[in-house]
Design a protein around this nucleic acid. Structure first.
Lengths: 196, 196, 196, 196
DNA sequence: GATGAATGAGTGTTCATTCAT
DNA sequence: TATGAATGAACACTCATTCAT
């Protein structure tokens, strides 16, 4: 891994665990095994580092969601896939995901609002994806007639909740992923056979 | 309101909206309409302010949960009441609630771990409350045979999700509170008649 | 003891042990069992407290030296009495004496030079006293023909040295007082019988 | 001289003349011709500066005393050399010597007791050196049978006294160095011919 | 005589950032 | 690429002191 990449990875980890403000450039330099000026050779500054990490993470998110939309599936299959996708991403890049979950609100009104724009777009896409899936499910009679957007928000809440929980309590025994899928299924599908 | 209280309230608001580290004492003093040294006359320092806000908020939480446990209700009635309680508290003291939701993880390993201890106790109580309610519901045949703790965590996720959403998108038109109750009800109760 | 006196005594102790600058008014208030504003009711401020302690201590010194001069004694008897006087004062008011020994040089160029003036006067009197005694002793053939002022300074050095030593090493077994008298006697008196 | 050295030298001078507490970092920066943060780039802080100066000064002292012990001399020759050594050091590095003489007692109980440990070692060495010399002199019949340790302390007092005096009254006419040597010689040596 | 509340001016220290090499 | 040295701006915090009561 190049030094530039090391800086990025280390920054993501420190920003995620300590917060953006609490991470100093000298600490970042030390933990990345470089000197401070080198950070400024590769990046414009601390904000630039933050922005790049956020942007890259959301990019990854967006392309994954796009990929998801192209694969046909049943209404609940789509929802299941979204839950699983979030879980997978959180396992692949836990630092970046936590960074987005925690630090973003704090930097919401920031300089160029880069973070806020990303978050809005992210919500827009996820809610759109879920709204469409739920709508389909209701139309086909598969789902109960739930309110569209509210339910989308609730499913998102479940997703965020388990991702957060997994970060703070790394307990491999609990199968939250499966439990979350079932929890949502039972709530949506009109069917006497629970957990089928 | 005394100047001491003004400082506390202002600190809660700033810590919640900007984060602990990003809030400077001079800014706090200005927005509270006092001089900087007065903060140090009434409090030991920035950390002390933070700790007191956290402690007071969790105290309020705990006493409310305790009060809840004393009122008898049906299994789902208990869960409904918890959801509504969280919503109410978030409306009463939105700054403090957001502060706990956002800043706490960042200060988790802090000095005396005051925040961490509170968060653990808080989770323990809520999960305990929910686990008992779910267990009762399953025993009485009212609820589907869901995994206890996982389901408790998922319900908590729903609660936290809507509280967070309500903070970031203050949209009085959406009735997330009612939607959340129904979402959980459908997922738990064995009953053909949805949304009744 | 009145609160005013308590403040003075406590200030002398703290100034002596920690230094003037390192002693804060709040610490002084706490250790004296009063509140800060009371210090300002009785005294003009920290500097005023310092000045009064210094002045009172030197006053005491001066009146004691004056009293000494009035009692007739042999040349070495006079010197012996001065050594013993210093030792006595240091035991009576150890804080004040140490304050003068340590803190004064640091405040030498201070505001009104009150300390410096006192120190100069103090040196002038002691050196004058010793010079006269030595001069007498030489004239009478009792003392060796030592240089007057230099020897006076050296005797003062011995005095200051044992006072300082006694403060830092409170060791009642060593009889430094007697040893100092003998040390000076042997150096001054022309006589084969040492230590008589 | 590098900026780092300039900071050290300036700090020694200011600490010595004004005291540690009364010297501010901004004043130190100005008088050293650097900016404040540079002090913190080269040193950990004000305390670190103080400690380093003290340590370096005592190191110099110790190595000089060690060198002294290796040169053979008569009992009084040894004592004479010690007096002259102290005088020399005080002329070479007057700031550092005064710093040790004045500021140390105030910082005696400080943080890691670095100063106290040095002072104890310093006293131990000097008193040991003097005790041995006096003991030799008494054994050989050259010295009067004076009490060992007390006399060592008194000689040290004479040394410290003239060093202090020389600092406060820079008067090149008085030959205190020679007077001190003679003062001690007369007090120790059994001999009718004084001042020979 | 005595105090709780309050403050202007300053403290030591750290920050993200730059420059010369 | 890479760095040792350096800095302007800001930081949390403390000081001696005052005022209204």
């Amino acid at each position: 891994m190049s030094k530039k990449e090391t800086i990025l990875k280390t920054a993501a980890r420190l920003f995620a665990t300590q917060g953006f403000e609490a991470t100093t450039t000298i600490q970042l330099a030390r933990e990345a095994g470089v000197t401070e000026p080198l950070i400024y050779y590769h990046f414009k500054g601390k904000d630039d580092l933050f922005t790049r990490i956020i942007d890259a993470t959301f990019s990854e998110y967006f392309s994954r969601i796009d990929a998801l939309e192209k694969k046909p599936a049943s209404p609940f299959g789509q929802i299941r896939k979204l839950i699983e996708l979030q879980y997978d991403i959180a396992e692949e890049m836990p630092d970046e995901v936590q960074l987005i979950a925690n630090a973003c609100p704090a930097k919401f009104n920031d300089s160029e609002g880069i973070c806020a724009a990303n978050v809005r777009e992210y919500r827009r896409r996820l809610i759109g994806y879920l709204t469409r899936s739920i709508s389909e499910g209701i139309s086909s009679g598969e789902f109960a007639p739930v309110p569209l957007e509210e339910t989308a928000i609730l499913i998102l809440s479940v997703i965020n909740g388990i991702v957060r929980y997994g970060r703070m309590n790394p307990d491999p025994e609990k199968n939250l992923r499966e439990a979350a899928v079932n929890f949502c299924r039972r709530s949506l599908i009109i069917n006497n056979a629970h957990g089928s």
